[in-house]
Design a protein around this nucleic acid. Structure first.
Lengths: 139, 139
DNA sequence: ATCCTACGATAGACATTGTCTAAGTCAAGT
DNA sequence: ACTTGACTTAGACAATGTCTATCGTAGGAT
């Protein structure tokens, strides 16, 4: 259990019941929920929480740099609470399962100057795609 | 100018005015249009073409493996006609400009077995993010 | 050359995901 | 305990994508 909530408190973030519930729901490892999934789970604990608040709160956590936004499938964005530990993602093309992975090496170093077109590069995002063991057997 | 249209013909794809126009509009290098952008340009040449046909046609070209789908921003998917030449993307975080890039090395080799969780990996997608020279000066 | 027929195209309703607004509510400092 | 500005809410709206029923047509058959 990482301590997303503690990190947010430590930054002087104004705390409300809604924000606390969103942070609690999102916390953990290999967690990659969509905004609507976060909302569904938040509603179980705080029935009157609104969709807009969940979207706002997630957006703020991303702006604060405490949560990563991941777009692995061109559908809904997913939210990853492990923003402080750099990692990449491994996605199952059949069931959509996502695992956090830590590749060796630095992909940034692999891009020669001649291929940078004058850009100032700040970040690299790597998505590995394949089939998970569970889907492979249930072919 | 790559020859998307020729490749599609060569595969025995049933040709219609609509499909030809979509293929023509999408052809070229560093082309990464959204479905609606493709539709807008197609309408200039064939005013009665419908949105649904553009979506269908793009989807079929992706299934045929002649066009790549790229989701760089969590908004609309973009379509890249250079599916036959493996490459990655470099995206400007301010204006959204996209360049095709060819990194050295093979990112797949960078993922140790212990980080594969039993997945059979078939593909790696790398997105470099930064600021393009144009946006850097117009700061 | 014309006809058939299955496949493709169409309009528009619908679905999903995300954003915005105006008004009400509340956390935290005084 | 007040006050205030930030937070939350419901619901309208917007953007993107999918589906269905119907119509049209490419390309083979005659």
């Amino acid at each position: 259990m990482s301590d997303l909530l503690e990190r947010l408190r430590g930054r002087g973030w104004r705390m409300t019941a809604q924000r606390r519930v969103v942070a609690e729901v999102l916390d953990g490892d290999h967690v990659h929920l969509t905004a609507d999934e976060v909302h569904a789970r938040a509603v179980e604990r705080l029935p009157e929480i609104s969709r807009a608040t969940v979207y706002n709160t997630l957006g703020e956590m991303v702006t604060l740099g405490e949560v990563m936004e991941v777009a692995t499938d061109g559908r809904a964005k997913r939210y990853d609470p492990n923003a402080h530990r750099p990692h990449q993602h491994l996605v199952c093309g059949r069931c959509g399962a996502i695992r956090d992975v830590h590749p060796a090496g630095n992909p940034l170093a692999d891009l020669p100057d001649t291929e940078r077109f004058g850009f100032t590069i700040s970040d690299v995002e790597v998505t590995y795609r394949g089939i998970c063991p569970n889907c492979a057997t249930t072919a």
